[in-house]
Design a protein around this nucleic acid. Structure first.
Lengths: 203, 203
DNA sequence: GGGCTTCCCTAACAAGTGTTTGGTAGGTTA
DNA sequence: TAACCTACCAAACACTTGTTAGGGAAGCCC
């Protein structure tokens, strides 16, 4: 009795993630919808059909790219959150961790930024919405803790502040280039300095 | 001697901009490439081919949407810059003006955010790159003036600060909804408070 | 009323899309 | 050497895409 074909199971994991890497970069650069499977294949030095030996659809490539990224992101985030640091230290650690993820998964982050909004409504990408909710929860509670502990200003709209910090961090993926003059930790330090203390001179 | 067809010249400007409005919203929501002309036509209550009575291509719709937005944006920006205010006041005015533009052209701003990067390299959309350069120049000089006048901190990387402020402002278009509880001026005020003074309590 | 313009529809086109099927070169195993 | 597996190619598939050509209904001008 023949089982359903699952071509990607037999393929070597190394080649798989290599192809996913090039796919991610094309997706990030051109946008998911504007990227044809033939373009991906070109970048990989093969023909379009050959991709289907490793993956069973273009969409499944996208899914795997985003899943891999989010899994690793939450590994880092959960470690920070479980450490139960003070609110300011938690915020700093989350920001630093975020820039490290941008450094590691620049393409995936860029894709996430551009596509997640209209993907999250599809059932297949429900994990994006889940992650987003978890993300919001972690940040909001950290900010609220900070206000309660009087380390963050209490005259600010918490939800607005959340979006401010969140966007500020992740948008960096659109211009960040790994291997540039500033490493992720250095950029995180400067961002934190601006977010926490502002850019105006203290009078 | 027959001249080239220019269908859109005879069409009424009101209907034109009405259609551009719905097109912009679909583009913003689904992304330009993921938006088919049939979807736009659906939202407008007509058939795909009928759009070509008003416009001569899908791309020309995108171009007109972005051009209209940028023209109005620079009207506001130039007014601010020509006023030759102090650096801090200039920054405040630019941010306020930006949020007003987001309020007025939410869809166009969202499209600009998502698509401008890979569009700017096309000759047809060279005006995007021009605008970007002009934009960068205005912001950088304002920040530099501020550092020289000792109203902005001098220990910050100017280019990083520029990207920080720029992204902080424009990303808001991805979640901002006109008619919400906060008007553009109120959001601008809170953003400025965070950017200038930071979110940490002053010790 | 006859012509003209405005605005849309019907129906199709060619090009490009993601995907499938069958085949095959080259290495590994028996 | 024979059987087998891996990783790809070649060629096609059904479908969607942006776009076009011709036509027609409704309103306005003479």
């Amino acid at each position: 009795m023949p089982t359903k074909k699952k071509p990607q199971v037999t393929a070597s994991p190394a080649r798989r993630s290599e192809l996913l890497g090039t796919a991610a970069e094309v997706f990030a650069e051109q946008g998911y919808n504007a990227t044809t499977v033939r373009k991906i294949a070109d970048h990989a030095g093969m023909l379009a059909g050959s991709l289907y030996y490793h993956f069973d659809s273009k969409e499944s490539m996208l899914e795997e790219i985003l899943r891999t990224f989010l899994d690793e992101l939450w590994d880092g985030y959960d470690t920070v959150l479980d450490a139960e640091l003070g609110p300011r230290e938690t915020l700093e650690a989350l920001v630093i961790e975020s820039f490290r993820e941008i450094d590691r998964h620049r393409a995936a982050v860029a894709i996430y930024q551009k596509e997640s909004k209209h993907l999250a409504s599809q059932e297949r990408f429900a994990f994006l919405a889940d992650s987003q909710r978890k993300f919001e929860k972690a940040w909001l509670s950290t900010l609220e803790r900070g206000v309660a502990a009087e380390v963050f200003r209490e005259d600010l709209d918490i939800r607005l502040t959340y979006r401010f910090v969140r966007d500020t961090v992740w948008v960096a993926a659109s211009w960040y280039r790994p291997g540039g003059q500033h490493g992720p930790e250095e950029i995180a330090r400067q961002y934190l300095s601006m977010v926490l203390d502002g850019i105006a001179v203290r009078t």
